[in-house]
Simulated scan of single mutants.
Amino acid sequence: MIMIDALKYGFANYFNFSGKTGRSTFWYWILATVLISILLQITDFFIVAPGLGVPTEGVGASQPLTWLYSLVILIPTIAMGIRRLRDAGKPGWLILLGLIPLVGTLVLIYFFVQPSEGSE
């Protein structure tokens, strides 16, 4: 699977919290969303914020494209994480570990890199 296929898969299964997602699909999704976010941040910083007349740094800084994109990918990213946990043989509710600062994120990354259940 390539990055474009992972993006299509993620958006095609926007509210699908059942089933499983393979390791490569999950990590391509993460890579694609991070790269798109970086491009949107650059666009916000150099084009959108100056065009709107808002500061690009400090307290009143604005990044409207980045915030909008983050909201759009929030649900499919959670769904993809739940399906990836299931694929690794873990219960989907462990996605809530992400609410614990740093430690929860590190534990989730450990679970996400585990091989699929049943593949040896």
Score class of each variant (00 low, 15 high):
Pro115Leu: 09
Asp87Cys: 05
Gly104Lys: 02
Gly104Arg: 00
Gly19Leu: 04
Leu52Glu: 09
Leu40Tyr: 04
Tyr9Pro: 11
Val54Tyr: 03
Thr43Arg: 05
Pro91Thr: 02
Leu68Ser: 15
Tyr69His: 07
Trp93Thr: 00
Ala49Tyr: 00
Leu97Cys: 08
Lys90Leu: 14
Val34Met: 10
Leu97Val: 11
Ile78Pro: 03
Leu99Gln: 07
Gly53Arg: 08
Ile30Leu: 15
Ser119Glu: 13
Phe11Glu: 04
Gly60Leu: 15
Leu31Lys: 09
Ala32Ser: 13
Ile75Arg: 05
Ser116Ile: 07
Gly81Ala: 06
Pro91Arg: 01
Ala12Gln: 08
Gly118Lys: 05
Leu65Phe: 08
Leu35Lys: 04
Val54Cys: 10
Val103Cys: 10
Asp5His: 12
Ala88Asp: 10
Ala32Gln: 06
Ile42Cys: 09
Arg83His: 14
Phe45Tyr: 15
Tyr110Gln: 14
Ala12Trp: 06
Gly19Met: 02
Trp67Met: 13
Trp93Phe: 04
Thr43Val: 15
Ile109Tyr: 08
Gln41Tyr: 14
Tyr110Phe: 14
Val113Pro: 08
Val59Pro: 11
Leu65Met: 09
Phe26Lys: 02
Leu65Val: 13
Ser116Phe: 00
Arg84His: 02
Gly89Ala: 05
Leu68Gly: 15
Ser119Val: 15
Leu35Ile: 08
Trp27Thr: 13
Leu99Met: 15
Phe17Ile: 15
Gly60Tyr: 12
Ile100Glu: 15
Ile42Phe: 12
Arg83Asp: 10
Ile95His: 02
Ile100Pro: 08
Ser119Ile: 13
Met3Ile: 13
Ile82Cys: 03
Leu106Gly: 11
Ser119Cys: 10
Thr33Trp: 00
Lys90Cys: 10
Glu117Ile: 13
Ile36Thr: 04
Ile100Met: 11
Tyr28Asp: 00
Ser70Tyr: 05
Ala49Lys: 03
Phe112Pro: 07
Leu7Cys: 15
Ala32Tyr: 01
Leu39His: 04
Gly53Met: 07
Leu7Glu: 05
Ile78Phe: 10
